[in-house]
């Protein structure tokens, strides 16, 4: 009996985020329309879609940044709007699209700010904080950069530092809004591999990406959005078709399979005829 109960709770724990009939709007504009999603711990979920399709809004709604008109977001079965912001921040960390910080700030200082939800006015620094910061720096490989200023870093290094800050928050769910958009292919790969590794350690990693090839390669769960709605959701191999790419971006594309591991590769050819006309 105990075993069954244990097993049951384990499968429930595996679903890190439930998004239920979520509807978010800015004034009259409906940015996210009736979205249902289940995102699992241990998986990389990648949200793709054209500009303005509501993917960033969806990500931010999951992080309690926009109050939905309808529906709810459950993190580990708790509605995030029934919890205080600091409690949500212990479950769920968000790296916004274009994070900003003073350039003179040191890497270590930046990463220490990731501990804010765990700290208080009279609990400003603990051994847990120190542990988390060190661990985050080790995982992202920025330990050697600790005393450098942010403006003295390359784009790739800086992005790793931001990731370290997010990891220092020690949340089971991590949301990253276009974490690779400013990086060259090598550094993109570095960040995505790191993300994959973190997922394998049991975190639920949720990313917004523009690069379909990277999305297909690194996503366990691909979510395709257009005009505020999810039009396809599942393993990249199963859902990524020429038809889906046309629906998403109005482009004609071939889907090839990578020779080594049969991961789909999207090759864009041309805009869909009606779009050109």
């Amino acid at each position: 009996m105990g075993f069954v109960a244990g097993k049951g709770s384990k499968t429930l724990m595996a679903v890190a985020i439930h998004v239920e009939q979520l509807q978010v709007s800015y004034g009259d504009y409906l940015a996210v329309n009736n979205v249902d999603l289940q995102l699992k711990a241990g998986e990389v979920t990648v949200i793709v879609g054209p500009n303005g399709c509501g993917k960033s809004t969806l990500l931010q709604s999951m992080a309690r940044l926009h109050r939905p008109q309808q529906g709810r977001v459950l993190v580990n079965r708790h509605d995030i709007w029934q919890a205080r912001p600091v409690q949500v921040a212990k479950q769920l960390a968000l790296l916004p699209q274009t994070p900003e910080a003073p350039g003179e700030m040191s890497v270590l200082t930046l990463i220490q700010f990731g501990r804010h939800p765990h700290q208080g006015l009279f609990r400003q620094w603990s051994s847990d904080d120190e542990q988390a910061v060190q661990e985050a720096m080790a995982k992202t490989g920025v330990t050697d950069l600790a005393t450098r200023s942010l403006h003295a870093l390359s784009g790739g290094q800086r992005q790793r530092c931001w990731l370290a800050m997010v990891l220092a928050q020690q949340t089971p769910v991590v949301l990253l809004d276009e974490p690779t958009s400013m990086l060259d292919p090598g550094h993109q790969l570095e960040v995505l591999q790191l993300v994959k590794g973190l997922a394998r350690q049991g975190k639920a990693m949720v990313l917004v990406l523009h690069d379909l090839i990277a999305a297909a390669r690194f996503a366990d769960h691909l979510v395709a959005m257009r005009a505020g709605s999810v039009i396809a959701s599942g393993a990249p191999r199963e859902i990524l078709t020429s038809e889906l790419v046309r629906q998403l971006y109005d482009i004609e594309a071939d889907i090839l399979l990578s020779p080594d591991d049969e991961v789909p590769v999207v090759v864009a050819k041309a805009l869909t005829a009606r779009e050109v006309a």
Binding site: P85, A89, L94, P96, H116, Q169
Partner: peptide
């Protein structure tokens, strides 16, 4: 958004 995601209203 970053301030909010650190658990601050």
């Amino acid at each position: 958004p970053h301030v909010q995601s650190l658990g601050v209203n």
